[in-house]
């Protein structure tokens, strides 16, 4: 059985909003997503972090005190690697991840989050857990003007509607 994105009928590729040359932001949905939450057990924070840091081929994102989202690694593999140093909880289906890039990505995200996203304050690789449009969001800076953002699956459609409306003034491309 194929994985079915909750946004398969909602997100349509194309160019939308203000038409002032190049789009201000480019939006896409990361699907199928592989995202596992890793929470260090009591007294194992250091060990868990070290194991994760040593991992190859997966992206480790801070997600709270002694908590991480690991993108691109199977839950079973992580369980094997971390043993009882951490709890491993698969959220690949529980969260929907958006990619937001382009020169106006910060201006767009600032309409939702109080986190200061200036490159000096929120450099590449930094993550934040915050609230955007009344929805809990996990945000990571992945490139110069690039971000990845995930929300609980059930909110994804509502969040997408908000996000795209806020992007209208910049003009946006959906891939």
């Amino acid at each position: 059985m194929l994985r079915e994105s909750p946004l398969k009928d909602v997100v349509r590729a194309g160019r939308y909003g203000a038409d002032k040359g190049a789009p201000g932001v480019t939006l896409s949905v990361v699907h199928p997503l592989s995202l596992v939450m890793v929470i260090a057990r009591k007294g194992k924070a250091k060990a868990a972090k070290e194991s994760l840091t040593a991992m190859r081929g997966a992206t480790v994102m801070w997600a709270g005190p002694d908590q991480y989202y690991v993108k691109g690694a199977e839950a079973a593999a992580l369980k094997k690697k971390l043993g009882d140093a951490a709890s491993i909880i698969d959220q690949s289906h529980g969260r929907v991840m958006f990619r937001i890039s382009g020169p106006k990505s910060r201006a767009l995200l600032a309409k939702g989050t109080p986190v200061d996203l200036h490159a000096d304050e929120f450099p590449i690789g930094k993550s934040a857990v915050t609230q955007m449009a009344h929805v809990g969001a996990h945000l990571t800076c992945t490139g110069k003007d690039d971000f990845e953002l995930s929300v609980f699956r059930g909110f994804s459609e509502s969040f997408w509607e908000w996000l795209t409306e806020q992007a209208l003034e910049f003009g946006y491309q959906v891939n």
């Binding site: 709270g64 005190p65 908590q67 934040a128 857990v129 915050t130 609230q131 809990g136």
Partner: peptide
């Protein structure tokens, strides 16, 4: 007591 309910949940 303050719960960072809109953030890291600590």
């Amino acid at each position: 007591f303050a719960h960072h309910s809109g953030g890291c949940r600590a």
